[in-house]
Design a protein around this nucleic acid. Structure first.
Lengths: 354, 354
DNA sequence: TTGAAAGCGCTAACAG
DNA sequence: CTGTTAGCGCTTTCAA
């Protein structure tokens, strides 16, 4: 840039202005500057140097628990991403996806990210990447989890939402239920879950849902300690199926499988079919999220507006500074009763005969 | 950082080393530095300043033609994104999604992006954002389109791939065909496409496919000038249906609809059903891409490895500098004959009786 | 093992 | 409308 200014016989300010403040320059001079720039192969102001000077990176960072690439396999995550991208687009800022695998504790990528703020999507409360984000002096908005005091957050009222679902099942007559849930901590436990582990789960959303289920079924006289809960580290349809297999293998008397996500529920449905169980006649299956495929299959689930979730988080972050008090946005959820929930076999027989 | 160094009575270099070169420091001193940093609320080296100094941003930019958010609605685009994210993750660099709507000619976001290179995915050859990317002194890899001399590119051999498809249809006996294609330029033309527009399309992939179809059907004695081609700006299932409606409304004698993407083909199938046309008995429909839903429905299509496409582009970019000559990676495609293609009605009658 | 000096490339005041 | 001055916060020789 210096050499450009020299060549033109003007100051560097003028060159800078030619790019950033067209109104501070005669159009003629500006034209000359730009043309000379092209001739000399000057590519325009360096974005990094500009960011350093203006203290604006023009991008927001996104941190998520899963492998970056995995986010593109989960329809709910894609919805969140889309909403967030929408908000960024409206504001003309970039979306910087931070590479952060759950295994690798390499936090450097968080430190290296040149961003004006972070959106953190569904990470455990003890995630080192999260700690690294919070250490940075930029605003942060959390989607779903964890809950951090003093931080903006966007998410559904998980307890209320799943309570409605539980009441639906209780109303149908289910008392012998089983639960399939997503990972409860950073350590892998593809197995049944102790009460202790449920209580101390580092994924707040899962913990809350389990607690709310325990309360709701407790009111119906079910001792939660007797309810089998199976956890899966990977969040895929196949793992959902394997979890269902594990649970039903040990507790064949279960009449309803409550899954904390639609993905897991899809797997449970597949496993039910494999075992020759009719849904909902022999087994009730429920999900959570309301992804498109679940709706297509008529899964009973709790629908949440994932796109809106991402967009709200983006807006909140980009408006940061305008508000002082931390904001919490609670999204509306809706219990969608599909064709995968019905009274348990025994009740059905009780009502309608065998 | 200066104040930290002062407080500690050491130089700034030492503080810097504490973060970046642990081996250049006594562990004891390093511990002291880091602890004092915490106490004073020093958040660690500023990433932007560091980038300025090291000339490394630790991120790659992604430019795509569609609205950022739209990329999350197209399964093929999601696949590319996933592959690219995978490559970035492996290298520990961020993925910076550049906001660039097709309408808005606001190129500033490209200038502002602090990245070490760009991946450009499927943009028209006259896209101003592309020009802005090329003006920047960083390596660039193109996925699919456009073809730019001297630039790395990853994509399928579109001509060869669609020629196989055309030969399949010719072999079945189709001579009266219609084409549904994606946008051919930055201007909106939701209508039939003249030969001139086909020839001068700014989206190289679409142009190539049309040309290859013209050649293949020409060999079979079909005058391409008589073949109706309908274009759609938006790439959605609904638009595919509307395009099919427009084409079949004007050319009901058509026996096969060739769609340049699975998304459009899905719409064509919907429209066929709406009209009471049986597929493939009354109408043959083909796609391109091989997305999951298409496979599920048994669509005859050309499958391409979208994830691999994204990953290859990422690797190529991140290895840039190691090679001098521009590299072109051609991906394998596979014609997948499903249940949506069959001999045309008249031929079928000819062979099997009415 | 540590420190001093020298910028990376740019823009925001402010003065002319 | 244009130029001067002063850093933004950091890392990297090189010398001690």
């Amino acid at each position: 840039m210096a050499s450009l200014a020299a060549e033109l016989g003007v100051s560097r300010t003028t060159v800078s202005n030619a790019y950033n403040r067209p109104d501070q320059l005669s159009p003629e001079l500006r034209r000359r500057v730009l043309e000379t720039a092209r001739r000399l192969g000057y590519p325009g102001p360096d974005p990094v140097a500009r960011s350093l000077r203006t203290r604006k990176a023009g991008a927001v960072g996104l941190l998520l628990t899963e492998n970056l690439s995995y986010a593109f396999r989960d329809p709910a995550a894609i919805g969140v991403l889309e909403g967030l991208a929408l908000a960024c687009e409206d504001a003309g800022v970039g979306l910087h996806l931070v590479p952060a695998s759950p295994g690798r504790d390499d936090v450097a990528a968080v430190h290296r990210a040149g961003v004006d703020g972070f959106v953190v999507y569904s990470v455990p409360d003890d995630d080192p990447h999260l700690a690294a984000v919070l250490a940075r002096p930029v605003p942060t908005v959390i989607i779903d989890q964890p809950q951090v005091d003093g931080l903006d957050r966007v998410g559904p009222d998980d307890a209320a939402a799943i309570t409605k679902l539980a009441e639906h099942l209780v109303g149908l007559g289910h008392r012998q239920v089983g639960v399939l849930c997503m990972r409860l901590g950073r350590d892998r436990n593809d197995d049944f879950v102790s009460l202790e582990r449920q209580r101390t789960a580092h994924f707040h959303v899962q913990r809350t849902r389990l607690e709310a289920l325990a309360t709701a079924f407790g009111k119906a006289g079910v001792d939660w300690a007797t309810v089998p809960v199976v956890e899966r580290f990977e969040h895929t349809v196949d793992e959902g199926a394997s979890a269902a297999r594990q649970l039903l293998g040990a507790y064949p008397q279960v009449t309803a499988l409550i899954c904390t996500s639609d993905i897991l529920a899809l797997g449970a449905l597949a496993e039910a079919e494999r075992r020759g169980l009719r849904v909902p006649a022999d087994l009730t299956v429920t999900g959570f999220d309301g992804i498109a495929e679940a709706e297509r299959l008529g899964l009973t689930t709790v629908h949440q507006p994932v796109l809106e979730k991402g967009r709200a988080a983006g807006k909140l972050l980009l408006a940061a500074g305008e508000h002082v008090n931390p904001k919490v946005i609670t999204l509306e959820t809706e219990l969608r009763i599909g064709t995968t929930s019905a009274p348990p076999r025994t009740m059905e027989e009780h009502w309608f005969g065998p």
